[in-house]
Design a protein around this nucleic acid. Structure first.
Length: 604
DNA sequence: GCGGATCAC
DNA sequence: TATGGTGATCCGC
């Protein structure tokens, strides 16, 4: 390229940059005038108690309070991206040929017909939802709060009472924003022990109506009351009314309920007459279709801000539009999304309610937000803390995992996730840290405001205990050598004991599985830090060191809290098993979203 | 299989 | 001054 061409090219680039900047500026102005307000309003504008609120005025206050912050800039960037994506989608919608639309319509109608065959109208499913749960529990202890705007949370509001909602206060709203909208707002910190105790009171009542009810979160549950209603020869609406009255009388809390032929309908219905009300959708096809048709798509569990924007852009606002635009949906969305929407239009959903304990956990994580920093020492320290917390949770749940994930939120609110497999299951903070810090180093330099660590590919150590390994040994042996002999049995029991010892070591951390970690360390040449006291030492030495640390530390004391000895039904030996089902259960209850998703996927 | 994005609460 | 934590799923590469 000669000099002249270079100059021209450079000039052209400048022009491009300028026009790009101008375009971006224009797009920024567009979203600020339009949908950015809506985005900033957050997820719960359509929640109950917001009816008389001037959302435009509230939106303006939120906008002004947020403007100029990193959070605002990030939301604005995302809004611009979404708007572009939707523009593309609209263009695609216009460019679908007539033939393609016709074909898609036939396809979609076939899918709908097929889905229709799965309809089950024989069950009475109920979804119950405690009204403003955390706030209501606090009000029981502090009745004077009932007449005042009041919220529970820390930094961000978890929930607020109906007095606060009259001002436009909502859950997930930043505290300082809420204070701008309503300066007299009273905010209490979270008191989980109290909420758990109250939730258990409610659940004790629920189990009388369905002993296999599913408590998805602290304040929500599904029940199948088909059998109960038959047994007491009562109308299902009467049953639910009585149940709600009992909860009110015995716990002081009001709950709302939805009744329908499946869990999807029940869930949506429980929001209709909130607070302290119930709504029934009869078990006939007409009633179901009628109920769904006028429903805004945003009310569907699984349709959030983004999908709502996309659907609205295609003219799909209510569920009946899903049918009218079925061809377009089938053309523009994945099968997964279109089938989900078709299910919703038809009002289909799960008719099975299973206890939450039956769901398998898939990951455990811990993360913390802090004032943004780019100091590597600081970031490593935060990572170490997250790893410590994660170890605690792993101990409570008695689980280890084969894959470690690192999560970083930049100062700009952009998210980064990295993950890598581990050879053998790990559950100790030091092991998490060794792996995660290597991933962190690769991202440096970076200015972050959040660091988290997550473990997946989980192994349940209590199920993977000695008994199971014994049985596995049995089958392995039989396959190999036909009939087991006494000698085989003896060998097997010995092998089992070895495995038990190994498992015990994983559980107590008395000897972390250093082999694979050492390999990984060599791979990554992880920088040594004072936070890892064993790193860089010889393997044997490291083992000793770990043993010493654990003996000298509180490790044993801790273990006594959650370990108990049980006799192996086969060999009679006492084996150590961590068996804290209660803690596990409580943790499940606390792990809000997880369960919901699990329910959603399993129920369909 | 990984990383980003979305969603729920 | 300033916007959370936990967990699941889906999608594109």
């Amino acid at each position: 390229m000669n000099e002249k061409e270079e100059r021209l090219s450079s000039l052209q680039n400048q022009v491009d940059d300028a026009s790009r900047q101008q375009q971006q500026q224009q797009q920024g102005d567009d979203v600020e005038d339009g949908t950015l307000h809506q985005r900033l309003l957050g997820p719960s504008i359509q929640k109950s108690g917001q009816d008389g609120v001037d959302q435009v005025a509230v939106g303006e206050i939120i906008f002004k309070a947020s403007e100029g912050s990193r959070y605002f800039d990030h939301q604005k960037r995302k809004e611009i991206e979404l708007t572009k994506k939707i523009d593309v989608m609209i263009w695609q919608a216009h460019s679908v040929s007539r033939q393609d639309i016709d074909a898609a319509e036939i396809r979609a109608s076939a899918v709908l017909a097929q889905l229709e065959t799965t309809r089950d109208l024989t069950q009475s499913i109920v979804h119950v939802d405690c009204d403003a749960f955390y706030a209501s529990v606090e009000e029981l202890d502090h009745p004077e709060l009932k007449s005042k705007p009041f919220a529970v949370g820390k930094g961000v509001l978890c929930t607020c009472n109906y007095e606060a909602r009259k001002f436009g206060i909502r859950s997930a709203m930043a505290e300082f924003v809420a204070k701008k909208i309503c300066p007299e707002l009273i905010i209490y910190p979270l008191n989980f022990d109290k909420y758990i105790a109250k939730a258990n009171q409610v659940r004790n009542i629920l189990k009388d109506y369905d002993e296999k009810f599913c408590a998805t979160t602290l304040d929500e549950a599904y029940l199948n009351i088909t059998k109960y209603a038959t047994r007491v020869s009562q109308d299902r609406e009467q049953v639910v009314n009585e149940m709600r009255t009992r909860v009110k009388n015995e716990t002081g809390l009001t709950i709302s309920a939805g009744i329908g032929p499946n869990s999807r309908i029940a869930k949506i219905a429980s929001n209709i007459n909130k607070p302290n009300g119930q709504f029934n959708v009869s078990n006939d096809r007409e009633s179901v279709l009628d109920f769904m048709s006028s429903l805004a798509v945003r009310k569907l569990t699984g349709v959030g801000y983004v999908l709502e924007r996309q659907l609205n852009a295609l003219g799909i606002v209510n569920c009946e539009h899903i049918y009218l635009k079925r061809a377009l949906i089938s053309e523009l969305f994945t099968d997964s999304t279109s089938n989900f929407l078709f299910d919703c239009y038809l009002g289909l959903g799960s008719t099975v309610v299973r206890p939450i304990e039956e769901f398998e956990r898939k990951s455990i994580g811990s993360e913390t937000t802090f004032r943004a920093s780019s100091d590597p020492v600081m970031l490593r320290h935060k990572l170490r803390h997250a790893c410590d917390e994660l170890e605690k949770d792993c101990r409570r749940l008695n689980m280890a995992g084969r894959k470690i994930g690192l999560k970083i939120k930049r100062e700009t609110f952009e998210m980064i996730t990295r993950s890598r497999p581990v050879g053998k299951p790990v559950c100790k903070s030091a092991d998490f840290y060794k792996l995660a810090v290597g991933m962190l180093e690769k991202e440096l330099p970076i200015s972050a405001r959040l660091i988290g660590v997550r473990v997946t590919d989980l192994v349940d150590l209590s199920h993977e205990g000695p008994m199971k390994s014994f049985l596995r040994g049995q089958s392995r042996m039989r396959l190999g050598s036909g009939k087991p002999t006494i000698l085989d049995m003896q060998q097997d029991i010995e092998a089992e004991n070895e495995e038990a010892v190994e498992m015990d070591m994983i559980m107590t951390g008395s000897q972390p599985d250093v082999t694979d970690l050492a390999e990984i360390e060599r791979d990554e040449k992880i920088e040594e830090t004072v936070e890892i006291n064993t790193q860089g030492e010889e393997k044997e030495k490291e083992k000793d060191e770990n043993n010493k640390n654990n003996n000298g530390n509180n490790g044993n004391d801790d273990d006594n809290d959650c370990l108990e000895k049980i006799a192996c039904p086969v060999c009679g030996n006492l084996v150590t098993v961590r068996n804290d089902a209660l803690n596990a259960h409580i943790d499940w209850c606390l792990s809000r979203g997880a369960i919901k998703e699990a329910v959603r996927s399993t129920f369909r």
